[in-house]
Computed example of a mutant assay.
Amino acid sequence: MMKVKRGPWGRGSWGEAAAVLDPSKPKLTTSAMIASIASEGQRTSAAPFGEALVKVARERPDILGLTADLGKYTDLHVFGAAFPDRYYQMGMAEQNLMLAAAGLAHEGFTPFVTTYAVFAARRTYDFISQGIVEEGLNVKICCALPGLTTGYGPSHQATEDLAIFRGMPDLTIVDPCDALDIEQATQAIAAHHGPVYMRLLRGKVPLVLDEYDYRFELGKAKLLRDGAEILVISTGLMTMRALEAAQRLEADRVGVAVLHVPTIKPLDEATILREAGRTGRMVVVAENHSVIGGLGEAVAGVLLRGGVAPPRFRQVALPDAFLDAGALPTLHDRYGISAEAMAGSLRSCLQ
């Protein structure tokens, strides 16, 4: 039987079509397209982005929703159902999508644009840069399937989107961790004037940060838990993984601090330098992104420029490679971003 390693180029829900097929292994029962990262029995919230945007839009008639044939798969369909006269389905034309949003922003509207992160980063970069960001327009680009949150393979896995967008001047970049983070971040970017790129977790999104007295603030990092041996600086879903790994290491009497960095740009350098500068702790940066060009290299630059030298510095990130297609639990283990894999990485860092 042929082994399928690369995902299809289409964007529909193809079920098992993109799963890695190997007759010597048990059949995978998880669809490659399922983007939920929730563990069995974990608390979740349905469509937090769509629900939060509806709440904001009730008080803000300037807010519009635009998508490129992906309303259902970015949770923008929730907004469309509530405000059909403010919802625009642009079809499979991402470049037109961005320029249409730019035109609407010029007229005083606040467009929330959704697509997949790979399409925004790869297909529309120049249109975002020249048509939206250089003009300082109030467009919010909110993209599903960031990093390794789909099993469709390189055609759909946005493993380099942060590296692509971090170099764009004047663009705010947000990478929320869970449903609470997405809800609060959506409210915050709606209140912020200027272009924003936000990574989205969609569907039934885990809910974890409500246990940590957390409140999203644009441009601010938050220390969720303290620990004497390791400081994990994390963003996006890897903050969730870091918290899970820290709990596992408690049994080994290893103290793991977790500093959540939901805003990649502008980076909260002062908090990072303060926490990384505490004596004796090694620093591990964890992100659902390539090891190249993301939060890890951004933090390394901050530490170097700030004259802070932790005893050791490590990264937990995706490899600089085109990743396989398959079921997400398998891929997260394979590429080291599951809770179990991350706990193992942290243990090995201490040896």
Rank of each mutant, 00 (worst) to 15 (best):
I128T: 13
L145A: 13
M1G: 14
V174W: 02
E229A: 13
T110F: 03
F322E: 12
S39R: 15
T186S: 12
R6E: 15
P26L: 12
A117M: 05
D213Y: 04
G151C: 03
G326N: 02
G336I: 06
I230P: 00
E229I: 04
W14P: 08
D22R: 09
I37G: 14
F216I: 01
S45H: 12
E340I: 10
D175K: 06
H193V: 15
A246S: 11
S39V: 03
N288L: 05
V118I: 13
V208I: 13
L209Y: 00
R314K: 10
V133G: 13
D252N: 10
G255N: 13
S129D: 15
I233V: 14
G194Y: 11
L237S: 14
K220F: 07
V205T: 09
L64I: 06
L218N: 02
L209M: 02
G41L: 10
G50F: 02
L21Q: 15
D170E: 15
G15K: 10
H77D: 14
K25V: 12
R347S: 10
P311R: 02
C142S: 02
I128Y: 07
M98G: 00
A298E: 11
G151I: 02
M168C: 04
M198E: 08
R43Y: 02
A117V: 00
L346R: 08
I292T: 13
G277K: 04
T159P: 03
D320G: 00
P266M: 05
T110Y: 07
R248M: 14
A317C: 00
N288R: 09
E211S: 08
S155H: 00
I34L: 14
A117N: 03
A341C: 13
L267H: 11
D75E: 10
P329C: 13
V205R: 08
E269Q: 13
G151A: 02
K5Y: 09
I337T: 11
A105W: 09
I34S: 15
T29S: 15
D252R: 07
A190W: 06
I264E: 03
L53G: 08
P26R: 13
D178Y: 01
P48S: 11
Y87L: 07
R347N: 10
A246Y: 03
D210K: 02
A47W: 07
M282R: 07
A251K: 15
G236N: 08
R334P: 07
E94M: 01
P319D: 12
E287T: 03
R248F: 04
E287A: 03
